[in-house]
Amino acid sequence: MTAIDSTASPARRLEWQQAEVREIVTETFRVKSLLLRVASWPGHFPGQHVDIRLTAEDGYQAQRSYSIASPPEDELLAVTVERVENGEVSPYLVGELRIGDRFELRGPIGGYFVWTVPTGGPLCLIAGGSGMAPLMAMLRHRDRQKAHIPGSVLYSSRSLEDVIYRNELDGMAQCDSNLRVIYTLTRKQPEEWLGPRRRIDKALLAEVCYPPDKNPKIFVCGPTSLVEEVARMLVELGHEPQTIKTERFGPTGA
């Protein structure tokens, strides 16, 4: 898959197609990434999502949306799934699915919560829990393009064990002086933890996010309550509402 023209927005019907599981990556004890081969994949923008549909033998169907965590440059499509307690679909995707299994998928979907290198920066990414997934697609795209657009990531998780993609994020930050990654751990922290130990507040946002006069491109993704709180605080810090793009995931997460 090659890099895409970010101004292209083709009008086309969303069709269900088949995805085959090629690899399964355990991210945390609750989270796995599924690497999928999708035969007629048209390409995607970082931030978009897919709908996945499962059909049981009795015909019962369940459909869910998942953000694409892989960049358009990668060959396989990655979706990161968090196993939700008493869930219907996620325990299947995280617990039962095997390499070679297939399911229906349609996408890519969404043009609002999208960032590509040509859009420019500086880039400010704020995530809660599994909300990191679409932001990871953006960061991986930035990395594949070797674009050193200044970026700042604030990632809120319950504990260090819950941080998804941690090694990869640390690796990116280490190799790129233009990228800063800050984790805040809200419920449990290792003793030697020197980072923030609280839910995202205005002080953290002021510290991590570029000031309004730098005109950062801001993306916030995670549980609904976190997203709405953070967006409100960013506006209070002087950011224009239309520079803040949000995606609400629902109640799970940090």
């Binding site: 009008a11 086309r12 999502h49 869910r64 953000s67 629902g250 109640p251």
Partner: peptide
Amino acid sequence: MTETENGSDLVLDGNAAAGLLQEIFVS
């Protein structure tokens, strides 16, 4: 995005409706 489990009503946003809306608007 994570799923809406147990059919619980979760306040999501227009991104989650994008698939349905694209069926209607085609883009």
